[in-house]
Simulated scan of single mutants.
Amino acid sequence: MLTQKAKYALRALIMLAEQPDDRLVLIADIAERENIPRKFLEAILVELRKQGLLYAKRGKSGGYRLARPAPQITFGEVIRLIDGHLAPIPCASKFSFKPCEDCGDPNLCSVRWLMVQVRDATANVLDHCTLADALRHRQSTGGLALMFDI
């Protein structure tokens, strides 16, 4: 299940992807527009900056912007950075495998077999959807908010 933290991270990144000409956006503006608690957003943006997804500038003319173009940032990358693995259960994880306590042999477990397929299908979708794709969807549905001066 996607955490609230990952949802907020994706919403903030999509908003930053909307900005023309690498415009820097203040945390307060992101928080207000996306209805994200400011303190929680600050922690998320710091984490995304440390992971190389955001560029930050301090000071009067500071703010945040994407560190890479929107077509190069996938939902899968963001979710993995924020939430960790994509697997619905630990024994289906590629990178954080942990066998279930009540399972004799994970290789014979039919539940794990199905959850690995779910993980792979989920990863395929998330790894092929970028921030640019989300912007196109937003524009096609009329959901693109007007740009505002910062």
Rank of each mutant, 00 (worst) to 15 (best):
C109N: 10
V111M: 09
E18A: 07
E32Q: 13
V111Q: 04
A134S: 13
Y8T: 01
L24F: 15
D22P: 01
F95C: 04
I44N: 02
M115A: 09
E18R: 15
R38N: 09
L26T: 07
C129K: 06
E77M: 13
Y55P: 00
E77C: 00
E42H: 12
Q117C: 04
K50R: 14
G59E: 04
V116A: 04
T141R: 13
L48Q: 08
L146Y: 06
T130C: 12
F75S: 04
I44M: 03
G104N: 09
D22L: 11
Q72N: 13
R33S: 14
E47N: 12
M147F: 02
Y55W: 10
G76M: 01
L131M: 08
L24D: 06
R23C: 12
I89P: 03
Q117T: 05
R49E: 15
K39P: 03
A132R: 11
R33L: 13
R136Q: 13
V25T: 11
R68T: 00
A67E: 07
L41G: 03
R58P: 09
R23W: 07
G143D: 14
A31D: 09
M15G: 03
E77F: 06
E77G: 11
D29G: 02
L131K: 02
K60L: 11
V116K: 14
K39I: 08
A87W: 09
E47S: 13
F148G: 12
F95P: 00
P20T: 08
L131Q: 01
R49Y: 11
P90S: 09
A28D: 15
D120A: 08
H128K: 08
D21E: 14
L131D: 04
P37L: 00
F75H: 01
T141K: 12
I82W: 07
A56G: 04
Q19S: 03
D83M: 05
R23I: 08
N35W: 00
V46N: 06
S140A: 15
F95E: 14
A17W: 04
V25H: 05
L146A: 15
T74K: 02
R23K: 13
L54Y: 10
P99H: 07
Y64W: 12
T74N: 05
A121V: 06
L86I: 13
S96N: 10
I82K: 05
L114I: 15
I79M: 08
K98I: 07
L10G: 02
F40T: 14
A28E: 15
D120M: 03
R58H: 11
G84Y: 09
D22Q: 15
N107D: 14
L54F: 10
S110N: 12
Y8M: 03
K94V: 09
R119M: 03
H85S: 14
V118G: 01
E18M: 11
A121K: 13
I89Y: 02
A43C: 01
D127Y: 05
K94C: 04
L114W: 10
H128T: 10
V78L: 05
L144D: 11
A56E: 12
A70E: 10
R11T: 05
K60R: 13
K39R: 13
I14N: 06
A145I: 06
Q139L: 04
L126S: 00
C109M: 06
I82T: 06
C103H: 02
L131C: 07
E18V: 00
L53N: 10
A28T: 15
C109D: 13
A12N: 02
G143T: 00
Q51W: 00
G59S: 06
